[in-house]
Nucleic acid binder design. Structure first.
Lengths: 220, 220
DNA sequence: ACCTGAACACCGTTCAAGT
DNA sequence: ACCTGAACACCGTTCAAGT
């Protein structure tokens, strides 16, 4: 956290550009790695050694910057073979990668989740590939968006859940919530035996249940 | 938005308390009804006719206030008969009420979603009732928390989705995303025929799929 | 006990410089 | 074109009053 010299730069155009959209986004991701990171432009500017106003030269608003980050995230999540695997297989891999990527940038989840609009081209390209896979596999047209959005909603909700303290549901006063205490302990022991966290097993369990349910809806 | 007189009050203790936790929470919910509401203590204080510092007398921090709101939300969501109906029926009603309640306070969703910790007693009591129903119906102990958290994650993710512009997935340039454009249009037409919004049909479809999947996991 | 004013350390954003 | 300083309108929170 100890900031190196603020490196007071003189006013006026520097000899070479100090920033670029690329460089800003990179630093933004580095900043969002930290949990407590409030994700302010000021903090971002600090890590880049510039004043906050300089960022507005590349991203008009904070929102635009975050939209840019989401676009990059989409690229990081990757393809996952929607073009060569059944949608219900590919979407499992996609959802896992999506959640992992969000989990790697906990400081970003809240900012992303509250971003009013998607609409950047990378996401559109991603959705297009996914929609194509659903249709190829005969999924009913009018259910593709619901199915896709359902999975994404679950992923984002799970990522938010994962960002909360792990013993969220552990009763502070177990005798007053005996059933909850029992099932919480059982979940913890089960996860431990599998060498995973409760949030991980929860995500995996919910994801497979959801996708299984979406497949049945296809048939029925 | 036009604020009535700021009603400049003199310093010193008023004859009767102007505020109470109750009154503050009520005004907080009223404020969160508005979509654009950024949910600042300053805005809240304005509607209450006091200075922002006065709020700290009842809630130490902004976080504590929002935790209080979540507690009240839990009460509003209500019981939904976990004590007399099978978990998979009651949880559908619970999830719908949960989402409706969040939807009625769009300004609150982001604040709630980014709240680091739950842990207030109302939520605990709610979870306890739900956990009891799962156990009564023979759901495996170690899967109760995963199932419950999965539904809640889906609800919160869906509420966030519902807070985004409705034509989120509508391609800006349809020819570049023909599949997406087709399924998005199909979803819209289908929802329209049912007299509901796409987000509503999406939520309902995803919810029933998820709960169906959770029931199957119980058997298998 | 319950409010205010003053103050602090922040924000995001705009705009007029300076090179 | 690309940065800074100054400035604006905000935040949440603390603290010393005042009654």
């Amino acid at each position: 956290m100890s900031q190196a010299e603020p490196a007071r730069r003189p006013a006026g155009r520097p000899r070479g550009a100090l920033l670029s959209r690329e460089r800003i986004l990179e630093a933004a991701f580095a900043l969002s790695d930290e949990r407590g990171g409030d994700f302010t432009l000021a903090a971002l500017a600090r890590t880049l050694g510039v004043r906050p106003q300089a960022l507005h030269h590349y991203f008009a608003t904070r929102e635009e910057l975050i939209a840019g980050m989401r676009g990059r995230l989409t690229l990081r999540i990757g393809e996952h073979g929607f073009d060569r695997r059944p949608w219900h297989e590919a979407i499992l891999a996609w959802a896992r990668a999506y959640r992992d990527t969000l989990g790697r940038h906990p400081g970003l989840i809240a900012a992303l989740a509250t971003l009013p609009v998607a609409g950047e081209p990378e996401s559109m390209a991603d959705y297009e590939r996914i929609a194509a896979a659903f249709r190829r596999d005969g999924y009913p047209d009018h259910l593709v968006v619901p199915a896709l959005v359902a999975v994404e909603s679950f992923v984002i909700g799970s990522a938010l859940d994962a960002a909360t303290p792990p013993d969220n549901l552990r009763p502070t006063d177990p005798p007053r919530a005996p059933h909850l205490a029992a099932v919480e302990a059982a979940a913890r022991e089960h996860a431990e035996r599998e060498g995973r966290s409760v949030t991980e097993t929860t995500f995996e369990f919910g994801l497979t249940a959801l996708v299984a349910g979406l497949r049945r809806a296809e048939e029925g």
